[in-house]
């Protein structure tokens, strides 16, 4: 636990020393602010719509593909390239503490980023608006859970290569696939199922199975169904936590495998 905390502190402070971080902060805050403002004016003062657009609009899903990938690339691939990973992995902390500390730092950074929307909600409340607080807080928490999942995916990708940009690219592809595959699965399988199943019942059974699997992996759907509505559903929490934990576990294993490869 101590090791995790030490690594977390260093990673987070390291992030805020890099110019990259401040550029990202600037771009994200300016664009989110513009969207919030635009929607507020465009909808004639509908605070809920404006907050929704700035927190979970299409822009958020673009950020969520790019930002964790870029952060995770710094965490493992770049350290591996500069040799500091060797330092960390020979320090008296376990691999898992290192992975957890780095993961927590990147997630905390994204959480700070998404907090800007809470400020917008607060500001509108101060000037007499009435934001839907449960939905706002739920959405904020949801964005953090989604970020955590994608950071974990990015870290796993980052352990596969010592070329930072390649790591970022791999991670983006994985994130896009993660988001798109559940949506596309139904379509793809509508062509494949008739080839496997001959009877009508079998076809229906297959379609149900595929739909179930796809919807169970659908991060977007899980987010929309619960957090966005201000609903804290344990099933949805378990979905995000288990997938994140799985990817973190795989990251630690992959780091260990690197040791074996040399």
């Amino acid at each position: 636990m101590n090791g995790t905390l030490v690594v977390f502190q260093r990673e987070l402070s390291g992030l805020f020393r890099a110019p990259f971080t401040w550029i990202v902060l600037l771009i994200v805050l300016v664009l989110n602010g513009l969207i919030f403002n635009g929607f507020l004016i465009g909808t004639g003062g509908n605070i809920s719509d404006a907050l929704d657009a700035s927190m979970t609009g299409p822009l958020f899903w673009i950020w969520i593909v790019f930002l964790p990938a870029l952060l995770a690339m710094r965490l493992v691939a770049e350290e591996s390239r500069s040799g500091t990973l060797e330092y960390l992995l020979t320090a008296p902390v376990s691999d898992f503490a290192v992975v957890l500390g780095k993961f927590a730092a990147a997630t905390a950074f994204l959480a700070i980023l998404w907090t800007s929307s809470l400020l917008y909600a607060g500001a509108t409340a101060v000037i007499g608006g009435n934001p839907d607080w449960p939905a706002v807080l739920g959405t904020w928490m949801g964005t953090i859970f989604v970020s955590a999942l994608f950071v974990a995916i990015g870290m796993l990708a980052s352990t596969f290569t010592a070329t930072p940009l390649l790591a970022a690219f791999l991670s983006m592809v994985a994130c896009i696939a993660w988001l798109a595959v559940p949506l596309l699965a139904g379509q793809v399988f509508s062509y494949l199922i008739p080839l496997i199943a001959k009877t009508e019942e079998a076809r229906n059974a297959w379609a149900t199975t595929v739909r179930d699997i796809a919807s169970n992996m659908d991060a977007f759907g899980h987010f929309q169904r619960s957090f966005r509505l201000g609903l804290l559903d344990t099933a949805e929490l378990v979905f995000f936590v288990t997938w994140t934990a799985l990817f973190l576990f795989l990251t630690a294993r992959s780091l260990e495998a690197r040791r074996w490869r040399g």
């Binding site: 101590n2 260093r10 020393r17 330092y87 008296p92």
Partner: peptide, 25 residues
Amino acid sequence: LPESVPLYPELRVDEMMRFQGKLHR
């Protein structure tokens, strides 16, 4: 001390030392 002398370039010398100290509790 590995051959590449891995140190975090964005840290100051004393910060790097403090990080090492904390890792070693």
